[in-house]
Design a protein around this nucleic acid. Structure first.
Length: 653
DNA sequence: GTAATTATGAGACTTCCG
DNA sequence: CGGAAGTCTCATAATTAC
């Protein structure tokens, strides 16, 4: 039943409305819209590139003009890799005669805007998405590195502008609203700076006021009316300008994915693929709008008990659900992260994964340790079955030797979440000393202290007054990995804890994957993002689902070694492809992989949680944190896989 | 002597419960 | 409404290994 989620029927309804073709708020980028916007951009060239361009370029507006006297020299330096606005600014300062002086200034300016080491990773992240480095540096500086959402948005807009500015040699753009300065999206209050267009329309009605606004910003009256018609009468200026920018963004996507990828350049995959960035932007925008309208409904309520659609041996089972159409496979996908993330994170994750409702499950229903996780997936949920035999499900079953020393006042039967760090020897010593001071039953205060530390650090009793953290192989067992999965091969104890603490609980994941067994009797092609020590692979293997082709993306060499070693030891007959960085997985690489073995059946990923988890005292920055933002790479890659596979299919047909 | 490992101590945010 | 419980952590210093 859905009662355990606050995930609303309402949301489902909304989606149905969308699918049935709601006009005004239908942001779906279907072919019709595509054409229409393209035509729109071409048929009305006078305003489209300029208004946004003015806003972005600020005082250096001359750069966007194709026929302005210094455009040639600007193009020259832009061709060398400097950003247009930087060149324009420098040319304005130094004059266009002395190109040496300009070059010197440009180099100096570039050096001064080089990324600091702290945000260079963020910059690499966006550069990896296909944006130019200087553009990224600039945008990161403007937006601050904390706000990846607005960075991405600005980048997309900039790309669009660069493309249109260089593609359209627009004779009129130079003298269009050159007095407009400041942020296009934020400042709409200053009417006085547009005196020359005052007479276009009187701002008597609300509609007229908006129209006037848009025309003052440099759009033609015709453009403004078309956009207002499309966006509906209630749309804000911000939405209207966003919509206009969408036309440029569609072109920006072209710039990101040049036409040379031959195999599919005539098929539909390329066409769809180029829109992923735009889709991402739209989903972000949609999220923002929804946030604005129902801020109260933002929170996802975690179910209690946390059993998702059901766990073995529990009567409450949900075997039916309706997935949004956009979420349907192929491929199947499976995304995992910590359930207890900061507010709004799961709403965002769900929105980006086609509005699929997360399934929150605590692994304590599968093993002796808690592990509260959210899973967003499009797998069927009927006829699931667990791995057998069941692993031990209480501490005593898992560690029978501890029973002898377990004090009666320690009432734990389950361990807390297995994390990446363990208690220090000093702490366990402190506990021993505290207990030795009292004969027999310790005072309540001591009991409370000890119990608190035991819960916090998952300590077990290994002797009289002696507690200890779990050994790595004990953690392996609890998580369902084969014994010694992470042992040896140059891996330290600390690394083992770290890798295991970041991993799936096999029994939980296998229970969800079990529905695939009937569907893929001949084996499965798996794309495993952030694969770590191979939780998904191990789960599928233990279910008896043959692994045909596995592409595992994992940044840590140690983890790749662990997976490779497991792969060899279990005599896998398929092929395992290692990839180090998700950034390597661009459209071309994916097309090549998909072409090689005919598509992925399952895309799995649990992106980094260290900016989400409550254990992080320093950088709990939510999805915008530098590591957890890799979630957006999961979305990016999943989108690409979907597009390429659908494109391939339609080509074959 | 340098590199790798280990020890140590650093709160915040959310939900649940009474 | 306040307290309790729980959380895939991080940076740095100290120590040990090579």
């Amino acid at each position: 039943m859905l009662r355990s989620f606050s995930w609303p029927i309402l949301q489902v309804k909304k989606m149905v409305d969308n699918n049935s073709g709601g006009e005004a708020d239908n942001f779906d980028w279907d072919t019709e819209d595509d054409l229409e916007i393209d035509n729109y951009a071409i048929s009305a060239p006078s305003g489209l590139s300029t208004p946004c361009g003015e806003a972005v370029l600020g005082s250096a507006e001359a750069g966007s003009s194709g026929n302005s006297p210094n455009s040639k020299i600007i193009d020259h330096f832009v061709g060398m890799g400097f950003s247009r606005e930087m060149v324009a600014k420098v040319v304005e300062e130094k004059g266009e005669e002395n190109s040496d002086l300009i070059l010197e200034a440009l180099l100096e300016y570039s050096a001064s805007t080089l990324p600091s080491s702290s945000n260079s990773k963020l910059i690499d992240h966006f550069v990896g998405m296909g944006f130019s480095e200087e553009m990224v540096v600039k945008v990161v500086q403007e937006n601050g590195e904390g706000n990846t959402d607005s960075i991405l948005e600005t980048l997309l807009t900039y790309s669009a502008l660069e493309t249109t500015a260089s593609v359209q040699q627009n004779p009129d753009s130079g003298n269009c609203s050159s007095d407009y300065e400041g942020s296009l999206l934020n400042d709409f209050s200053d009417f006085d700076s547009f005196s020359e267009s005052e007479e276009i329309m009187s701002p008597s009605s609300e509609e007229g006021r908006k129209l006037l606004h848009l025309t003052k910003m440099g759009y033609s009256e015709a453009e403004a009316s078309v956009v207002m018609e499309r966006c509906g009468p209630d749309s804000t200026i911000e939405e209207l300008t966003d919509f206009i920018c969408a036309a440029q963004i569609a072109k920006a996507a072209d710039a990101l994915f040049p036409l040379e990828d031959k195999p599919f350049s005539n098929g539909s995959s390329h066409k769809k693929r180029r829109n992923w960035g735009y889709d991402l932007l739209l989903r972000k925008k949609k999220l923002k709008l929804e946030k604005r309208f129902d801020e109260d409904d933002d929170a996802v309520h975690l179910p209690n008990p946390m059993i998702g659609f059901g766990v073995p041996n529990e009567p409450d089972q949900i075997t039916n659900r309706v997935l949004p159409e956009a979420a349907l496979g192929p491929p199947y996908f499976y995304y995992e992260n910590v359930a207890l993330a900061p507010k709004g994170v799961w709403t965002t994750i769900s929105r980006f994964l086609y509005d699929v409702e997360p399934e929150f499950v605590d692994s304590k229903f599968f093993c002796a340790a808690a592990r509260k996780r959210g899973y967003v997936h499009n797998l069927p949920i009927d006829n699931r079955f667990p791995l057998l035999p069941f692993p031990p499900r209480t501490i005593h079953e898992a560690f029978p030797l501890t029973r002898k020393w377990w004090p009666s006042w320690d009432t734990r039967t389950k361990l807390n979440c297995l994390q990446t760090c363990i208690a220090s020897a000093r702490l366990t010593d402190k506990i021993r000393k505290a207990l030795e001071d009292s004969d027999g039953e310790p005072p309540l205060g001591i009991q409370k202290f000890v119990l608190e530390q035991c819960r916090k650090w998952n300590l077990v009793w290994v002797g009289r007054n002696k507690v200890a953290p779990l050994e790595p192989d004990e953690v392996e067992m609890l998580l369902g990995f084969p014994r010694n999965h992470t042992r040896g091969g140059g891996i330290s104890r600390t690394d083992r804890y770290k890798s295991l603490g970041n991993s799936f609980q096999i029994d939980t994941v296998a229970y969800h994957f079990s529905v695939l067994k009937d569907k893929f009797p001949g084996g499965i092609n798996l794309l495993s993002l952030f694969s770590g020590i191979g939780g998904a692979e191990v789960a599928l293997h233990q279910l008896g689902i043959p692994l045909k082709n596995v592409v595992a993306v994992e940044i840590a060499e140690l983890n790749r070694n662990i997976l490779r070693s497991w792969w060899e030891q279990t005599n896998q007959r398929g092929t395992l492809t290692d990839i180090q960085d998700v950034q390597e997985l661009n459209g071309d690489r994916l097309e090549q992989l998909i072409k090689n073995f005919g598509g992925f059946d399952l895309v799995v990923g649990g992106s980094p949680c260290n900016n989400l988890t409550g254990s992080n005292r320093y950088h709990r920055d939510g999805l915008e944190g530098k590591d957890s933002a890799l979630f957006f790479d999961f979305c990016r890659i999943l989108d690409l896989v979907k597009c390429i596979m659908n494109g391939t299919k339609s080509m074959i047909i």
